[in-house]
Design a protein around this nucleic acid. Structure first.
Length: 176
DNA sequence: GCATCGATTACG
DNA sequence: GTAATCGATGCA
């Protein structure tokens, strides 16, 4: 079994780089009640980097919803979008610096809303640390070659304006 | 209290 | 192209 990634490993201020490095790592769901364990590699991520990033929820300030992004790295940020889809994010960066990485796709599961549904992820995980005892954690994996990873603009954030919406903060593993 | 807005998906 | 669906937010 692969090494478990600790929350403290995501304290780097370079969230965009962390989003790139998360590609290929394994997302592990452990349900103590049903004993079902799911282990899937991450193939798509997006970086949301700090108060200046107009696409980042925290750019509007510290609120009940965004509070977790200001907290310690390595905790889950889960929220509901469009009234029906749960989005899974990993908080990154130093304490009090609001940043997170949206996990958009896993091998065999395309789409951020679909993956949370598949793994049974909901708001009960919000603000919990990415540890085995929380029921959802990350495990290390060999680095995915740069030739297989492409960077593109983030999805669905045109409202953030051309400067932010066009930045290559989305990473997709081109598995073929 | 009430109106508006989505880090999406599925279907035509 | 557009409907579905509801918590967070902002304003009164």
């Amino acid at each position: 079994m692969a090494r478990i990634l600790k929350p403290a490993e995501f304290t780097s201020a370079d969230t965009v780089r962390l989003a790139r490095e998360l590609i290929g790592k394994q997302l592990v769901r452990t349900d103590t009640a049903t004993r079902i364990v799911q282990r899937l590699r991450i193939i798509e991520t997006e970086a949301y980097d700090g108060p200046e990033d107009l696409a980042c929820h925290a750019s509007k300030g510290r609120t009940t919803r965004t509070e977790v992004m200001f907290g310690p790295a390595g905790h889950w940020y889960v929220y509901l979008i469009y009234g029906m889809h749960q989005m899974l994010n990993l908080v990154t960066g130093p304490q009090d610096y609001p940043a997170a990485i949206l996990i958009r796709g896993l091998e065999s599961v395309s789409g951020p809303g679909r993956l949370t549904k598949r793994l049974g992820i909901g708001k009960e995980l919000n603000s919990l640390p990415a540890k085995r005892q929380s029921g959802l954690h990350l495990e290390d994996a060999p680095r995915v070659d740069d030739a297989l990873v492409k960077a593109t603009p983030r999805i669905g954030i045109d409202y953030a304006g051309p400067d932010w919406s066009q930045r290559p903060y989305r990473f997709v593993a081109d598995l073929a």
